[in-house]
Design a protein around this nucleic acid. Structure first.
Length: 988
DNA sequence: TAGAAAACGTA
DNA sequence: GTACGTTTTCTAG
């Protein structure tokens, strides 16, 4: 490079964000892949390059490079740990575009530069100074103020979107200081987006004025005591150090090590066919045409490069939240687009999905090809490849199934160099052991296995990949890995989860565990965990597994996960379920993980006292029961109990169980008690006490975490057919409430010192959903008027006025209302109400006469389910009922009832999911410290600092009540009751 | 020792 | 009549 040459440096990362926000948001390729930013980027690049050929334009580049940010972390984080802490993850539909823009740069035959540990700005600064040094001119394509410090006689900025050149004069005009003053100005002002602190109370105007007066930051700080304005003076004195730190943060590094020297940046001509193929693949038709013309390429003969929707990155479907118009219309538009795409000779999403599935099933898995990575250099290479391809499957190996206890002992990665190949032939997978221990059990418990990658170094390389949202991580049940990594200081950002994708696609068609999915889609049975770690008392933890077996097992997990993703992700687009996945499913992973991580405080003493009381009560009852029975027996054994009750004592047996025994269910025992027998009542009571004791007061303390001293449940996102969550280990969604004794257990769930528990629950959400979907005028009106819905139903059915209605009448109406939600049958209603089937049938008949819309809804839903094999919630989530066409009438009836229930239960579940996804941001925006701890289907429980309770309650209420909006306008309002107290019993 | 059956806690 | 998870007992291996 020499004087007179002109170097163009494009701030690729900055451009991506700016283009994303500036351009129409919904630019997508026919398979749903979002490409708005890529499109803007390519057009901009082409325009600049055209200028290079057109000598009539004054500015003609001779050298050219696009610079990208490399990793989330750089030297500035060492200066200031909170640097860029305010940055939120990039928008979902931008993530897949990072890799595409790198691909685009290469397709344009332009150097694509990035370097670990440095921001794009530093590399730009370095090249700009180098070029300046040889007398060349430099144009930096960016309008970022952070780069303005570089502007000078030979260096200017070019804002490609406003087509504006920024030289020293423009900098001074905009900021009141010249380029040389920009660093000091930024140091004073700070930057809330990058979280550069600056000095409080000083904005750009004041900063410019001060710098004008004192010359530079150091002089200003020396003379800070002379400032007249009191507050300003105090702040300058108090935060002087902070300003100096800020200066170090904003000053760009001009001695970044660079791989390519200036001569390597010389502008080469474009390879016409290659570029055309790429642009054609992205369906940029007008740019394709222009490029073809300019490069003398016959576009018609060039085959489009298959640029992935595919590129395996998040292909995007319709937006559930139509701040962008009508969601239903959106959904249909995708279907329409699919056929258009086929007309263009491209794959339709469905055809692509089918092709992938076929290839995946034909692929073979070869354990011999797996790598075991045992040195840092190799690991770095793999991380680099992940970055290049923008895609990596990831799985952790630990020493516990409990994510809150698990320590990382290794991890596996899988990469592919061709995301179009679902056969897996292009996949490489590896296991990285970190803390495996020798198997022999010497006194010290066996030392570490030799030649493992040093833990801290490996973790930091992994961290850079996992936290970089522009690299899509693919996992199976990522909530587990997310939590484990979080506990190791790493926050995974930018991911897909094959468990959740499968769940969205196939809820109701069996479970979604990796082994099942692998057999279903790949025809491959993965190595069972048992085979590696054994079972029962001879089981070992993964850290004791020898590296060869561990590699086979762990690398296979990553390999299989990546293959599954290649098959399943296109199906999301094909089935129009991308929005469900991205709006209702994927965002909950981090939300739930944080809830699990927080846990809830449980008072051991209350539980232990209760346990004692329950033990006493049960023992007393046990003695009485055995006294009456005339012999000791195991009351907990239904078999023995049946023999005593219906054999020895000769009580009349009621129902039989499936196994043919006499049933001893609570219902049967209650009936016997009502008939005057004294023993059954005592057994019911005994059962209640022992149930509460064993399931709750005795079990819960065992779940208190040794270090956090709180109870951390685990939520399953993909276990129910309807879309509800489930909770386990321990299940905190079935803590007693119905009986007085049971409720006492809730008093043990407490807020930590200085806090309250706030419980917010939806009132009658399922009935409201029913009123909405079935469009029942009376119900809609009743909810609009905030009436007692069961009383209103009773009044409508039986002609009884709501005023002074007997409790029994209301109770019956209530049972019918619930019955409807559960897919009513005369049999079930009769059971519930203890009336004759014929009478129950009459009730149902009368109900349908009064509410014909409900009958229509039920019939329509059944017909839909029979036709499609699934039903949908109001947000488009599907629940499959493959057996609804069963020839077995009871099986069929069961599936029909479930299918009637699923849209109601599932829509309610979707609503609270939406509320949960929004809640954290809503709280943060209001500067509230409330922490969401638990979800119980229609209830959310928070822990809130005492002095924020008042402010938090209305916010929580409004987020929940407005959760359906704007995606759906419900015909009925949602109502939420909110209460605060010291414990869960009083808060609910 | 693993898994089914019965019972029962929640929404 | 829907949707779950946990506990205890008992049986099959």
């Amino acid at each position: 490079m020499k004087a007179g040459d002109h170097l163009f440096l494009i701030d690729g990362s900055g451009y991506i964000f700016r283009a994303y926000h500036a351009l129409p948001p919904l630019t997508r390729k026919s398979d749903g892949l979002p490409v708005g930013a890529v499109s803007g980027f390519c057009n901009m690049l082409w325009k600049l390059l055209s200028d290079a050929r057109d000598t009539s334009v004054g500015v003609t580049p001779t050298h050219f490079a696009v610079i990208f940010d490399h990793s989330a972390k750089n030297f500035r984080h060492d200066l200031y740990t909170d640097y860029k802490a305010n940055r939120s993850a990039p928008p979902e539909d931008l993530v897949p575009q990072f890799a595409l823009i790198r691909q685009a740069t290469r397709a344009f035959n332009i150097p694509c530069i990035e370097r670990e540990g440095f921001e794009a700005d530093d590399i730009i600064a370095t090249y700009a100074r180098l070029a300046e040094g040889v007398g060349a001119d430099v144009t930096i394509v960016s309008s970022d103020k952070d780069l303005m410090q570089l502007v000078g006689e030979h260096v200017s900025l070019y804002d490609s979107m406003k087509d504006r050149q920024i030289g020293p004069a423009e900098v001074r005009e905009k900021w009141g200081v010249g380029p040389e003053g920009m660093i000091d100005l930024q140091a004073l002002v700070g930057d809330s987006i990058d979280n550069v602190p600056g000095i409080p109370g000083i904005g750009p105007k004041t900063a410019a004025q001060l710098l004008d007066e004192y010359g530079d930051l150091d002089t200003l700080l020396e003379h800070a005591g002379e400032i007249k304005q009191k507050k300003r003076r105090e702040n300058l004195l108090e935060f002087a150090e902070q300003a100096r730190l800020s200066r170090d943060l904003v000053r760009l590094k001009t001695d970044t090590p660079v791989d390519l020297d200036l001569t390597a940046l010389v502008l080469e001509p474009q390879d016409g066919p290659r570029l055309v193929a790429f642009l054609k693949g992205l369906e940029f038709s007008s740019l394709t045409r222009r490029v073809a013309e300019a490069t003398g390429t016959d576009a018609a003969t060039v085959e489009a490069e298959t640029v992935e929707g595919e590129a395996g990155s998040a292909a995007h479907g319709p937006d559930l939240d139509p701040g962008d118009a009508d969601a239903d219309a959106d959904t249909k538009a995708v279907g329409a687009r699919a056929s258009d795409a086929f007309a263009n000779g491209a794959w339709t999403p469905a055809a692509l999905a089918a092709k992938r599935s076929e290839a995946a099933a034909a692929g073979t898995i070869d354990h011999a090809r797996y790598h075991c990575i045992r040195d840092l250099e190799t690991l770095k290479l793999w991380a680099e490849e992940a970055r290049q391809s923008g895609l990596v499957a990831f799985d952790t190996e630990t020493n516990s199934l409990d994510a809150m206890q698990a320590d990382l002992v290794g991890f596996s990665l899988a990469l592919t160099h061709d995301v179009r190949d679902a056969s897996g032939a292009a996949i490489r997978a590896a296991y990285v052991p970190l803390l495996h221990r020798k198997q022999e059990d010497d006194l010290l418990g066996g030392g570490l296995v030799e030649d493992q990658v040093p833990f801290d170094e490996a973790l930091s390389i992994l961290k850079a990949v996992l936290e970089d949202a522009s690299i899509l991580k693919i996992g199976q049940n990522l909530k587990y890995d997310w939590l484990v990594m979080k506990r190791h200081g790493v926050t995974i950002a930018g991911f897909d989860d094959t468990l959740l994708i499968s769940y969205v696609l196939d809820a109701g068609r069996g479970n979604h565990g990796m082994d099942v999915l692998s057999e279903r889609w790949l025809g491959h049975t993965p190595i069972p965990y048992k085979e590696v770690c054994g079972t029962g008392r001879s089981a070992i933890t993964f850290e004791r597994v020898d590296l060869e077996a561990a590699t086979r097992y762990a690398a296979e997990d990553a390999d299989v996960t990546l293959r599954l993703w290649l098959v399943l992700k296109p199906r999301l687009v094909a089935d129009g379920l991308i929005a469900v996945y991205e709006r209702l499913e994927r965002p909950l992973v981090a939300v739930l993980a944080r809830m699990e991580e927080r846990g809830v405080s449980v008072d051991r003493q209350i539980l232990s006292r209760l346990s004692g009381e329950l033990a006493q009560g049960a023992a007393a009852l046990e003695a009485e029961i055995q006294e009456i029975a005339g012999e000791p027996f195991n009351i907990g054994s239904t078999k023995q109990l049946g023999e005593i009750l219906f054999g020895k004592l000769g009580l009349p047996g009621g129902a039989k169980t499936k196994g043919g025994q006499w049933s001893t269910s609570a219902q049967v025992l209650e009936d016997l008690a009502a008939a005057g027998h004294e023993l059954p009542r005592k057994i019911v009571d005994w059962r209640q006490l022992t149930k509460l004791k064993s399931t709750y007061t005795d079990a819960l303390p065992g779940y208190i975490h040794p270090t956090t001293t709180r109870v951390h449940t685990s939520y399953a996102l993909a276990s129910t057919t309807t879309g509800r969550l489930s909770s386990s280990e321990p299940n905190l969604q079935n803590i007693p409430i119905r009986t007085a004794v049971g409720r006492k257990i809730r008093t043990a769930f407490v807020a930590e010192r200085g806090h309250k528990l706030v419980s917010a629950d939806y009132s009658q959400i399922e009935l409201r959903v029913l009123a909405h979907v079935a469009e029942i005028p009376q119900l809609v009106q009743a909810f609009a008027d905030d009436m007692d819905i069961h009383a209103m139903t009773a009044s409508e059915m039986f002609g009884v006025p709501v005023e002074g209605m007997p409790g029994e009448v209301r109770r019956r109406a209530k049972a019918i209302n619930f019955g409807i939600i559960y897919g009513i049958s005369a049999f079930g209603l009769a059971n519930q109400l203890g009336i004759e089937r014929s009478e129950a049938g009459d009730y149902i008949k009368r109900y349908f006469e009064r509410f014909p819309g409900i009958r229509d809804y039920i019939e329509d839903t059944k017909a839909f389910a029979r036709q499609h094999g699934y039903v949908e919630t109001i947000f488009g989530r599907r629940a499959h009922y493959p057996e609804i066409r069963s020839a077995n009438p009871s099986m069929r009836a069961f599936n029909e009832r479930a299918a009637i229930n699923a849209p109601i239960q599932g829509s309610a579940a979707d609503v609270i999911r939406r509320a949960m996804i929004r809640m954290e941001d809503a709280l943060a925006h209001s500067n509230l410290a409330a922490r969401m701890l638990l979800q119980v289907h229609d209830e959310l429980i928070f822990e809130v600092p005492d002095d924020e309770v008042e402010a938090t309650m209305p916010l929580v209420r409004s987020v929940m009540e407005e959760a359906a909006m704007p995606a759906r306008a419900m015909r009925v309002p949602l109502r939420v009751d909110v209460r605060a107290a010291d414990n869960w019993d009083e808060a609910h």
